[in-house]
């Protein structure tokens, strides 16, 4: 475990926990895309199929349990909690899961490290994670609503992406056989989507105007 990996895991963890705690506390999920949250729950569920079969470390198992528990809790709040669900921008959050899930599944069937159920699901989870933020970005663009909650959430996710890339570079030079093309390429695509968002986020902050993303 290097410092970049730890920082990446911690910002990732904070992004999910900050979102869950705020939804729990203020009983509102305004500006948050349920589609993106459901996709993340699916990402964790398909990636952590090894949770009971391969023991890596106590840290690893606990983190997986927290990610699974918190992502499904967020979805539960947004769908089932009687106050939270009222604040959900349902009419604006119209992105179809299907358009992201199907291509990722097909790509995972073709591009995987080994053609087994677990490996195909693992590749699928990486492809899906790369694009799962898209419904959130579409919702931001439509509602033009970038409050503190959404801003902090997307900022923490962006920090997680950046730290993971530093982690891969570090591991590539320090661990002789560390090569994971699928992880790196899908991770890079995901980070580029964030960079695009950050460009507009930073500009709107600098000019002290409301965020205005291009259509």
């Amino acid at each position: 475990m290097n410092i970049f990996r730890l920082a990446g895991d911690m910002t990732h963890l904070m992004s999910v926990l900050v979102l869950l705690l705020k939804i729990h506390t203020i009983k509102s999920c305004a500006g948050i895309s349920l589609k993106t949250q459901e996709l993340y729950a699916l990402v964790f569920a398909t990636r952590y199929l090894d949770i009971f079969t391969d023991f890596i470390s106590v840290y690893n198992t606990i983190m997986k349990l927290i990610f699974l528990g918190s992502s499904f809790s967020i979805v539960w709040y947004m769908r089932r909690h009687k106050l939270v669900r009222r604040s959900y921008d349902k009419e604006q959050d119209t992105f179809r899961h299907f358009f992201l899930v199907l291509p990722c599944l097909l790509l995972a069937l073709v591009m995987n490290e080994k053609f087994t159920f677990k490996e195909v699901m693992w590749a699928f989870s990486l492809y899906l994670e790369a694009v799962a933020i898209l419904p959130q970005l579409v919702l931001l663009q439509r509602t033009k609503n970038i409050d503190n909650l959404t801003g902090q959430y997307v900022f923490l996710l962006g920090a997680y992406r950046a730290f993971y890339i530093f982690n891969w570079i570090y591991r590539y030079f320090t661990e002789p056989h560390y090569v994971h093309w699928i992880t790196w390429i899908s991770g890079l695509v995901q980070t580029l989507l964030y960079a695009d968002f950050f460009y507009y986020y930073f500009n709107s902050w600098k000019n002290n105007v409301k965020l205005h993303l291009p259509a």
Binding site: H12, I56, S57, E113, K114, N167, H177, V179
Partner: peptide, 10 residues
């Protein structure tokens, strides 16, 4: 080495 090894990242 890029094979179907144990994945230690989250």
């Amino acid at each position: 080495s890029g094979g179907a090894d144990v994945k230690d990242e989250l």
